[in-house]
Design a protein around this nucleic acid. Structure first.
Lengths: 139, 139
DNA sequence: ACGTTTTCTGGAATGAGTCAAGAAAAGTGC
DNA sequence: GCACTTTTCTTGACTCATTCCAGAAAACGT
């Protein structure tokens, strides 16, 4: 399925800017907004920062992108959606990697107490040190 | 155990500012920095915002406070530490409540893949709508 | 108390993210 | 294709949580 069809399927107009951002996200990883701006700009020549925010918000709304924002980091985005996977984050450098859900399809939704909340998602963040940072002495 | 002893035990000097912030945190809840500044300032008369940031960082470093920062929210702090409990967050109003760990003492530390990371904490955030917001129509 | 070290104050600076209005482009029907 | 309507993009100003810095004040050990 190409990006153009995906956009139409979700009721979004097809624009150069959106295709560029989708292309960057399809390269994988967990780029920050800043990185997305830079890499998408390379693809289309010129592109405003605001447009990238608009696009990312739109993509997030329809489920074509997912916002990931670990404590203390800036917003990151990824294109892998719908499988409720989780993330490992490096305390030192902020690197993010995907982790499949260990529990199953719709996991940990069973909170011990829900305080009357209607819960629709359980987000797990694993904190640690990445291989690269393990080679450096602790601060 | 009073706050003064707690501070000394962790190698921190005892100051009016630190005692005020600890007192606010001891009242429970998950106040934002802004709220902490306001409420701590009521206790000591005058208090700089920067001092509150310093104190909170120091308390977090030694484990007397814990920083909670759900995606899209500003930093919040709580005094309940060391039991690896989790949080439910309201998507609409941002309200935060505690949730005991459903899995056990040292939970979900078994990530399906760790990518070479050395993991030391698993943080779970449940997303949903709080009782109050459930009474309002969806946006 | 004295001196040393840590902490607090006050003010300026940073920077991610948001807001708003007009210009440009996308989709629709003729 | 061409004109029309609606959405999206650009530009630039703006907000505000958080950080940085240097001097003043307070805490602790002797």
């Amino acid at each position: 399925m190409d990006s153009e069809q995906l956009l139409r399927q979700h009721g979004l107009r097809v624009t150069r800017q959106r295709l560029a951002v989708l292309a960057v996200l399809d390269e994988g990883g967990h780029p920050t907004v800043d990185e997305i701006v830079r890499r998408a700009r390379e693809r289309v020549g010129s592109l405003s920062t605001q447009a990238v925010y608009n696009v990312l918000t739109a993509l997030d709304d329809v489920g074509l992108a997912r916002r990931v924002e670990p404590s203390g980091s800036h917003a990151r985005f990824e294109s892998r959606t719908g499988d409720n996977h989780h993330h490992v984050v490096c305390r030192d450098c902020g690197a993010v990697e995907d982790v499949d859900c260990a529990v199953g399809e719709v996991p940990c939704l069973e909170a011990a107490q829900h305080h009357g909340f209607v819960i629709d998602e359980a987000e797990v963040t694993y904190w640690g040190r990445c291989p690269r940072c393990q080679q450096n002495p602790l601060p």
